[in-house]
Design a binder for these strands. Structure first.
Lengths: 209, 209
DNA sequence: TTTGGTTTGTACTCGCAGTACAACATACGA
DNA sequence: TCGTATGTTGTACTGCGAGTACAAACCAAA
């Protein structure tokens, strides 16, 4: 349980695809043992069971996301720009780890029921956004909205679902290209909205009379 | 298996809260039997096991959502207005059935692995939105976006995550008020975006120099 | 009353998570 | 060199709970 040696940790990733594909329930500990090359007895020596395997993998993913987003968010730009960067960062990490993402969707329920993970989830995904929205109002780069909490939640949903479903579509040949595509789409949506009055970013051209 | 008598169906809903709370794995068939008053043997007579219980409940939820959204979408208004109505409809149903929603999040993985459900999920949530966006471009009430598929996905995410997490927060005293609140926030986001240039709906007042 | 669907209790099988434990490896001092 | 501590692994076992088998009711209709 404590501090899982690096070698084993890296081997454990071999289980991600399995879990992503069949769900944790559909995956026997023996399968994990076989896929990772770590014998069952050893797994149990270090980890408190199946859930702990998932927890380990997902914690890692969440930390990567939180890290990347953290960097994106802490630049000196205005909040609007940082929001775009955060979107790109989150989607970038997610698309780089499609199996982990799929495992996350697949066992989201379990994940939210593992207290540590629930916290990690919140701090990886939701909190940075919440903060950016507040910053944006302060620096004038984002609008004041009526219900910031609910909006932050939606923004979080927009980003995350895009990433998750991209990951579910199966691993792509060029994750970073996909990430760029999705991140442009998401940013376009959450910054400029869908209603017709002219956007302002400028990289658009929909003038047809 | 087929056509589960109405009486049993209604009793089965008694299992929703249980499943929402502990996840399907954490819920023994015996627990379900006890909670619903339907003896285990009878459950197995009609249903193909635990998954089928979940499938039954979620199919129902998804049909309710698809139905409500379907109505909202088929009015004579322009697409923008119908989009708002669809958001409100989806959130309305979701908040009316918090336990089912929680069960859905909790066992999303299983849900997506049950083929019928995956289809129902798509057609309840995603497809109507996709269509509305296209309609909106056609009737001029919504912008043309660069990547409609990805944007539709994000919109879907924005709505659904808002609803889901509202449901997870625990059942509210006044679901329809919450639904209205969330639906306003989501519509505000996806229609007008967050960037600073003036919104156009008009019910905003953030002029502070 | 017979027939055919339901309902339910009881008792069973069986797969798999988790545990126990013994044998072995490795390492680091003394 | 031994001893002690810490990891590694095989093997055999326990226990829980899903799903099954089945027989005995039950309840229409015909």
């Amino acid at each position: 349980m404590r501090k899982l040696p690096a070698k084993l940790a890296s081997q454990l990733y071999g289980a991600a695809e399995l879990i992503a594909e069949r769900g944790l329930d559909g995956t026997k500990i023996e399968d994990i043992a076989e896929a990772t090359g770590i014998p069952k007895a050893t797994i149990y020596y270090h980890l408190d069971g199946k859930n702990a395997v998932l927890e380990f993998l997902l914690t890692d993913l969440l930390e990567m996301i939180a890290g990347a987003v953290g960097v994106a968010v802490s630049s000196a730009e205005d909040a609007r720009t940082r929001l775009e960067a955060a979107v790109a960062a989150q989607l970038g990490v997610m698309l780089e780890h499609p199996f982990l993402c799929r495992a996350l969707v697949g066992d989201l329920g379990r994940a939210t029921r593992l207290p540590d993970l629930a916290v990690a989830l919140r701090s990886a995904f939701y909190e940075p956004i919440e903060k950016l929205l507040a910053d944006g109002v302060a620096d004038g780069s984002l609008r004041q909205v009526a219900d910031p909490g609910a909006v932050a939640l939606s923004v979080f949903g927009a980003i995350t679902v895009a990433g998750l479903s991209a990951a579910v579509e199966g691993p792509s040949a060029d994750p970073s290209a996909d990430a760029a595509r999705f991140s442009a789409a998401v940013s376009e949506l959450i910054l400029d909205g869908l209603a017709t009055p002219r956007p302002r970013g400028g990289h658009e051209s929909d003038d047809r009379p």
